[in-house]
Computed example of a mutant assay.
Amino acid sequence: MDTKGRVSIPASFRRVLEQSDPAWTDGLNPELVIVYGDHRRNYLECYTIDAINEVDDKIDALPRGSVQRKMLQRLFHGQSFPTNVDETGRLVLPAKLREKIGLEKEAFFIAAGDTFQIWKPETYEEEELSKTEAWLDELPDDFDPLSYLDGAPEN
């Protein structure tokens, strides 16, 4: 990350953003929405336009006035930042978002289909990696997690 808060988006992520932005055409910068969320979220989650529209449709399908709808609107609409990738393939992260997750020099990206997460590398190592290791430690030594892809029952 540079001093202006710009991070380079991996090219493969940019292609997904382009393909999932209905308004994008060659020569334009793809749009996305960064959801920074509540106090428990220690990362930024970047949604393609199609992905955030899907979330919005699901929120809109909830009963008007319901607590669930109000809370999800706050979490997604009230705690998000619409933006776009610049012409050099970078994303400008406002100071407020960088400060929220303690991002200073380096950013760690994790792709998840039509979303990706931006983490402070140390936070990811401390929190998420330890969760994964704990989960793996609960499994039998000879269990292959890839078997979940075939619908194996969860232990």
Rank of each mutant, 00 (worst) to 15 (best):
D2M: 05
R6G: 08
R6I: 02
V7R: 07
S8T: 14
S8I: 01
S8L: 08
I9G: 05
I9L: 06
S12C: 01
R15P: 00
V16M: 07
Q19S: 14
D21V: 01
D21F: 04
P22V: 03
P22F: 10
A23F: 09
W24G: 14
T25F: 11
T25R: 15
D26R: 15
E31R: 14
L32P: 04
V35C: 15
Y36C: 05
G37Q: 11
H39K: 09
Y47S: 10
Y47Q: 11
T48M: 04
I49K: 13
D50E: 15
N53Q: 13
N53Y: 06
V55H: 05
D56F: 06
D56M: 02
D56N: 08
D57H: 05
D57L: 04
D57Q: 09
K58Q: 13
K58L: 09
P63K: 11
P63L: 02
P63E: 15
R69C: 07
R69I: 00
Q73H: 05
Q73Y: 02
R74P: 00
L75P: 00
Q79N: 08
T83K: 02
N84W: 01
V85S: 07
E87T: 04
R90Q: 10
V92H: 11
P94K: 13
A95E: 15
A95F: 08
L97F: 12
R98W: 15
R98Y: 14
L103A: 08
L103N: 14
L103S: 14
E104L: 10
E104N: 13
I110L: 15
A112R: 04
D114R: 10
F116I: 04
F116R: 08
K120G: 01
P121Q: 07
P121W: 06
E122D: 15
T123D: 14
Y124P: 03
E126C: 00
E128A: 08
A134W: 03
A134F: 02
L136D: 05
D137W: 01
E138V: 00
P140G: 05
D141W: 02
D141C: 00
D144T: 01
P145L: 10
P145T: 05
S147R: 04
L149N: 13
D150A: 10
D150F: 05
D150E: 12
G151R: 02
G151L: 03
A152P: 00
P153T: 12
P153Y: 11
E154P: 00
